[in-house]
């Protein structure tokens, strides 16, 4: 399907790579202008290839490819910026973001603004700027917006502005419904919704925000669990065995 085409120097990140045949790599890429793209890097696993060091996740790249259909052939790959190094749980948070993108976006469906959000997330994770939970919640918020399922954080299902101190119930189809009896008990405080909309650290890092985003993402993820989430939790448990509080300073996984 489609005619033969050539794309030059497209801004991209690699979300995932796996060995293909004897000497090649199969790449799942997230590009700014072409959305998610599947590429074959022929000969990239040969001993003398310079590609494997470049074709790594979380590195800002310029990719050129040609071909038709679902799987095109990589022609060239260059680093487009400083290589990012993600370590420890931040690496797993990055893998989680990659898994989210693979599971929620379609191939050849461009989302330039989402590419921007992803770039900021990866940069912040690499620079250790900000708590992982906060960065991931804001990325999830922006991901949903890019997909066309943005949360109506500013107003309730009836159209009234969301107010702090009032508790809301979230319904994936209709939005936020105010609950009688104030913020006590179940429901999510209006302050958290407004904080999440404004990108405030306290609100975005809260457990309530995590549960809300989980509920909002669930319809787009299908039945299978997210593997990186389990990995994150197991990682924290492995670290906990050390005794004392885990060194992330969080009581639970930052991933959904």
């Amino acid at each position: 399907m489609g005619e033969q085409r050539r794309v030059s120097l497209a801004p991209a990140y690699i979300l995932h790579r796996r060995p293909y045949r004897d000497t090649s790599l199969l790449l799942e890429c997230f590009t700014r202008d072409h959305g998610r793209v599947g590429l074959v890097a022929r000969g990239a696993r040969r001993a003398r290839s310079r590609l494997p060091g470049t074709l790594q996740a979380f590195q800002p790249l310029s990719l050129s490819w040609q071909g038709r259909g679902d799987l095109a052939t990589l022609v060239d790959a260059e680093l487009a910026g400083t290589p990012a190094r993600l370590a420890g749980t931040r690496l797993i948070s990055g893998l989680y973001a990659n898994e989210l993108l693979v599971r929620t976006t379609r191939r050849q469906d461009p989302h330039p603004e989402l590419f921007g959000h992803y770039t900021r997330l990866v940069t912040a994770l690499a620079l250790e700027a900000g708590a992982e939970g906060v960065l991931l919640r804001l990325f999830e918020r922006d991901l949903l917006t890019s997909l066309g399922y943005g949360l109506p954080l500013g107003h309730d299902a009836g159209g009234a502005p969301v107010q702090p101190g009032i508790a809301y119930r979230y319904d994936p189809d209709t939005g936020f419904h105010p609950l009688a009896g104030g913020a006590a008990g179940r429901g999510i405080d209006g302050a958290v919704l407004l904080g999440l909309a404004a990108g405030e650290t306290g609100a975005a890092g809260s457990r309530a925000a995590r549960e809300l985003m989980r509920a909002a993402l669930a319809p787009h993820l299908g039945e299978r669990p997210l593997y990186s989430r389990g990995l994150y939790r197991q990682q924290l448990r492995a670290a906990d065995a050390r005794g004392g509080p885990s060194d992330t300073g969080e009581d639970d996984s930052a991933c959904q």
């Binding site: 993600l86 370590a87 690496l91 990682q235 492995a238 670290a239 050390r242």
Partner: peptide, 12 residues
């Protein structure tokens, strides 16, 4: 990237 994640897990 995956090897790094594995190494970190093992180290913890």
């Amino acid at each position: 990237v995956e090897g790094e994640a594995t190494a970190h897990y093992l180290a913890e």
